[in-house]
Each structure stands twice: as structure tokens, then as C-alpha cells.
Amino acid sequence: MSRHNDKLDSLFKKMADSYAEQYGNELKQEFDELERNTPPMITPGLDAKVKEKLKPRRKNYGRIMGLIAACALVAVIIPVIYNTVGSPPLNTATIQEATDAVAEEVLPEDAAGEAAIAEEAAPPAMADDAPAMEEPAAEEAAAEEAEDSVTSSAPEQQYEIIPLSFDLPENFTVEDVEQDIGKTIYYLQDMRLDDTVLTLERSDGFTVPDGLTEYEINGQAAYGSYEPDYSYLTFEKGGIVYEMTCEHDLNTLLELGAAIL
């Protein structure tokens, strides 16, 4: 970061701190007034909603923990069976099937396990009418992590990265590329600070999405939209549907489209 930006950042920080301080004091006065003039409110609706918001995450966590336990069980059992019974033709498909079967078996029964986990981990209830708060953040984080590890084991090899069949305009460099269930996503860094995400997907047909404006690029049709925070352009060429978004200027996308079409 340059010195200029550091200076700017420190100016912004000073302004934000000062604003938060004043705004906070103003709100504090408002809060005190509210306390003085309003009798204590009972909020069963809000209490229930907050409780409800925390609940699903626990369920999800329990389900994922069940699935992980099932996978671990399979990982232990399969080699034992393999060694005991002899050497049946074992391949990844049978392991996968076995994992699925055990997972299916475990998941419906998981409600009881879930309740047990919930009971075990549940903190003491809050006093009075307040909802008993659990630890959603922890479980959500754990669940997200577990979910990631579960999904990352899904078969991906049937999809391939679709290579770019054109020269990128000079202002772009490929920052990253990833494959997402049939879609190839290119993250393009723009020298003019209008970074763009380009998605390619093989397709037999192209349906024009509703509500887009038609643009003609090199004699071919492309469809796009401009919103304050989000520009979008899509078209089809050679059996591949291209979709692109950027933060600022639709022209960034039209120029990129011109390089493709």
C-alpha cells in the first residue's frame, strides 16, 4: 500500500471513529429516554424468533456430524471385512455405495442423536423470559467446515476446465480459474479496477434470460443489464454460454465480449 493510501485510510478511520462515537452517544441518549418513558416490554415473539434462528444450525451440525461418523465407521469396517472375507473385488464405487448406505441409515435416525448432542452442549437457560442462547457461530463454523470437507469429496473429474479460445484484452489478467459443476469460472483482474468474473458453460441451447437489453457485438447478439452495483452480459458462441459480471461499467463487459465474439 502506498503512503497516499495509508494517509487516506487513516483519515477515513479517524472520520469513522469520530462518527461512531457521536452516533453512539446520540443513541445512548435515545436509549435512556426510551428506558425512562417505556415500561419494560415482554417480547415473546422476538424471543421465539431468535431461538428459532439458532435452532436450524444445531440440526445441521448434528446431521453433518452423523455423516462424518458414518464415513469414519465405513472407513474402519471395510478394511476389516476385506481382510476377513478374503479379497472381493473392491473398488471406489462399492466404497461409495457403502458410505451412502450407511449415511442414509444414520441420517434419519440422527434426530435422536441430534437431540443428544443438543442436550449435551446446551448452555444453561437464560433467566426469565429471554431465550436460551446456544452457540450458533461455533457450530455453524464447524458445520461449514464439515460441509466443505464433505462436498469436496464429491466426484469432480467428469468436468473439465474450459480453456479460453480467445486472446484476453490487454487490461485483463487471469487471477484465478475454478471449475464449479460444469461451469468454468475465470476471475479476471482489470487494470482499470473493474475486476470481472467470466463463466463458461457447455450447452446445447441458449435461452435468452428475461429482462435483458440486446446488444450487437461484431454482428452477433449479446444480452446484458446494468445496475448500480452490478453489470451483466451473456451470449452463446460455439456451444459455450458465456456469462460475465463486473462491478462498475458495462463497457468493460462489452469490450471483453468483443474479444470473444
Binding site: L27, E30, F31, L34, T38, P40, M41, T43, L46, V50, A121, P123, M126, A130, P131, M133, E135, A137, A138, E139, A141, A142, E145, A146
Partner: peptide, 30 residues
Amino acid sequence: MILLVLAFSSEEEKSKFEYIYEKYKNLLLH
């Protein structure tokens, strides 16, 4: 993962949240 769960399972955090909830729920609703 267990470490992660432990890292977030803090009584202090829970009490802080409960305090904030009780104290400011009316203001937030307002």
C-alpha cells in the same frame, strides 16, 4: 474441528450476548 467448537463455546461470550440481548432488544425493535 473440536478446537474450533471449543474456541467459540465461551461462557463469557454467551453472557455478553445475553446481556446485550436483554438490554437492547427494545431499542432494536424500536
